[in-house]
Amino acid sequence: MLEIKDLHAYYGKSHILQGVDLRVGNGEIVSLLGRNGVGRSTTIKAIIGDVPPEGSIRFKGEEIVGLKAHEIAHLGIGYVPENRDIFPGLTVRQNLLLGMKGTKQQGRWTMDNMFEMFPLLAERADTEGGVISGGEQQMLTICRTLMGDPDLIMIDEPTEGLAPMLVEQVSELLAEIATRGVSVLLVEQKLTIALKISQRVYVMGHGRIVFEGTPEELRANDQIRKEWLEV
């Protein structure tokens, strides 16, 4: 599905990504873990084309380096930004409509699906996105991206600052996404849900991948966890 080789990215003169290799298979849930500031967000921003990438990123076999963000989205990559970045002045329903790439609703997800899965969002369908709770905003950002029917969804720290019950909800939603045949690239700092739902995990440190393996392998590797994950 997604195959990244020797990915570099810069903010001005600072060399943030220094050769990242990463792969996400069909229907797989893969987590990209690491401490704050190591370059996880930059990695997925480079994939979606929000930060200019250098190197090779192949999606469904096609090279996407050099394409614009909206073109990459149309190829089937969905991106859920960090910080619950909804459109605060627009209603929940309008936020969801903006996730659609055309006027026709088809594919895996419909607005009714979303409202069935999250009755709270249905209740607040005509409320402005800026005034709903943090947990609802997090669900809304994910649902908004799903409305575009991506084949791969990249989600940046969805559990950050959420209450344990909501974290559980996010984890169920990610599992549901994967059962519908969508690949997931999950960025997290905490290991809680990542180790539970992922098939494979990557650990990032200072712009490079420092570990690649299964959740079991990471659990067993005290040294990597001490050096790159635990604070």
Binding site: K68, Y79, D85, F87, L90, L97, T145
Partner: peptide, 24 residues
């Protein structure tokens, strides 16, 4: 209208609008 929503979103949050597939 949908076009109007896309305009509003692109004016206030151009990066997010682009990653959702809109040609900002």
């Amino acid at each position: 209208t949908r076009v109007g929503l896309i305009v509003q979103a692109s004016l206030t949050h151009p990066h997010i609008a682009a990653t959702l597939g809109h040609n900002v």
